Structures are given as structure tokens and as C-alpha cells.
Simulated scan of single mutants.
Amino acid sequence: MSENLLDCLVVGAGPAGLTAATYLARFRRHILLADAGASRARWIPASHNCPGFPFGVAGNELLARFRLQADTYGVPQVRTRIIRLERFDGGFIASDGARHWQARTVVLATGVVDRLPAIEGLEQAIANGTVRLCAVCDAYEARDEVIGVLAPAQAAIGHAAFLRTFSRHVFALAADDSPWNEAAQQQARDCGIQLWPGPQRLELIDGACLARSAEGRRLRLDTLYPVLGADAQSDLAAALGASLDHEGALAVDDHLQTSVPGLYAIGDVVSALNQISVAVGHAAIAATAVHRRLPENYC
């Protein structure tokens, strides 16, 4: 068992998981990186918000660079989806339904899955920037455009107000049947946000997003930000009793350890700002904490 027992299993190979695995490999730890190949970073057409890339970098290119760095230090990887995590006296047992791995510690970098509107050609729309998923990341690239925010009525106003610092032409589109309350209407007036009823249909036409209302109104948007929430991939930890926040993200301490000893979480699955730079910082902190927690590995 001791030969097969991993020092750490890293689950998820986005920027966070790949960075954590690289750190642990450089610490000369016996690790494995398990990944299902669905990093949220792959959606990024070009990030101009990632440190070290002044002219922008596509998500897949960035992931390739992270993978190359991990490969340079011999990080072993397996393409699979871990579906179950259990405790045993020496650590954790992870399973993909067919295979099992034992590890003293586990780092979860499982991310979130965005809830997206039903639009034909959505992937292409994201690729060309017509649909954007992160205003903090790329609102600068949408400056001065006609921008729409699709979100539950009351929540849409706050997101739209943030985007008003980048464009004079911002519309809040209700994603539910709730009427705009008086406070929301006043905030919209104060911020210069235009309110629009929930679209009956969204379609892509000539590089723009066209919203059609039930009354037949049409609104052409250069950029649409759907803010419909995301589902944190925290089930593995939750099954072990790890603490979650009200949105299902994992609560962690200053060392990125969950409430389950030996179980760490990094990146978007953690209750924090969802940014690549934050995920990489999480990875450095967690990997170093894991290394210090483990038995010494003298030469």
C-alpha cells in the first residue's frame, strides 16, 4: 500500500490544478493529476487580464502552456472523472467508477459550470466575443459597445451598473418573470441603465445578439453578458461533509484547506473571485501547505 499511496491527488487540470501539480512535483512529491478535460478556461477567446500576456492569450493556449510546464516536471496525468471520494485512516480513496487511487491528501480544482442561455451557436458566440462570461475579465474589451446583461431582474441592475463604467449603452434584461421593483427602477435611472423585459428569444445575427420580446420588440446587442449563476463542482467534498457557502462553493481556511482535514480546494470551486490569477495564487498556497503537512521526503 505504501508504494501505491500518493502524497496528493489533484483533481482538475485548469490553471489552478496544473499549477498545484507543478508545485508539488517540484517539491518532489508522489502525485497524480486527474482531469476530465472540461476546464472553464477553454472558453476564453482571448484574455487580456492574465498577468504576463500584455497582448492577450487564448484559453486553450494558456492551458497548453500550463500543461507543458507540468509535463516538464514529470507530472503524471490520467484523463478521467473522479466520481467518488471517501476517507480511510491514511487519507482518501478516489474512484472514477472503474479504478481507485489512495492519497494522503487531495486538492480539488474542479471549478464551476456556468448556467448559459439557450442560443444556437453559443460556443461560436463565446469564441468571437458576442457572448462574454466574465465582466471583471473582459468588460474593458466591450467598452463603448451596446451591452446587455441577462440576469434575474433585481440582480441584473447591479451587474449592469458595473458595466456602465465601460459603456453608455447598457441594457438590463430580465431572465425571470419578476417585475422591476421600485428600488431597481430608481437605480437604473440613476445609473443610466435601460430596462428591458425578458427576451422570448435570443439569436445571433451578423456578429451581434438579437433579443426579441414577447411583444415583438427587438434589441441588437454587440455583447451579451449572461449572469445566470454557476454550479460549483463541490459534490466530492460535500459528500465528505465539507462546509459550503450559500451558493455551494467550498469554504476554506487561509491555507485553502476545507473543513475536512487533508482536503484542499482551489480555483473557482472556492468561495472567492473567479479569476485565473486568483486560482494560481490559491494553487501556490495550497500546494505549499500540502507539502508542509506531509511527512518529510528527504533524499
Rank of each mutant, 00 (worst) to 15 (best):
D71Q: 14
A142T: 00
L85R: 11
L228K: 11
E61K: 05
W43A: 15
S178G: 05
A70Y: 01
D7C: 09
D268H: 12
A135T: 03
V10M: 04
A238V: 09
A156R: 08
Q194M: 08
S277M: 12
Q200V: 02
A251D: 11
L224H: 02
P226A: 00
L6R: 05
A64R: 01
D222Q: 12
R67I: 02
L68Y: 03
A183G: 11
S2D: 13
T130G: 05
S95K: 13
A242L: 11
S277W: 02
V227T: 08
S213E: 07
C50Y: 15
A283K: 00
W101I: 09
P45C: 00
R201D: 13
N274S: 13
P295N: 11
L244N: 09
A283P: 00
H282N: 09
S243E: 15
R132Q: 10
L85V: 14
G262K: 07
A160Y: 02
L6P: 03
L263G: 06
H246D: 15
A155Y: 03
H30F: 07
S213K: 04
A160F: 02
A34M: 04
V278E: 00
S234I: 07
G262Q: 08
L221F: 04
D235Q: 15
S167D: 01
F166E: 03
A174F: 08
A211N: 09
V278C: 03
A188D: 03
Q102A: 15
L204P: 00
N297C: 06
F162A: 03
L221K: 09
G37T: 13
A161D: 15
A38K: 15
F53Q: 02
Y298N: 14
Q257C: 14
G129C: 06
R104D: 11
A103T: 10
R212Y: 02
A272L: 03
C8P: 02
P295V: 07
L263F: 11
L204E: 10
Q124F: 10
A98C: 05
A94W: 07
R132W: 03
L85N: 13
A20T: 01
D7G: 06
A21R: 10
L202C: 11
L202R: 12
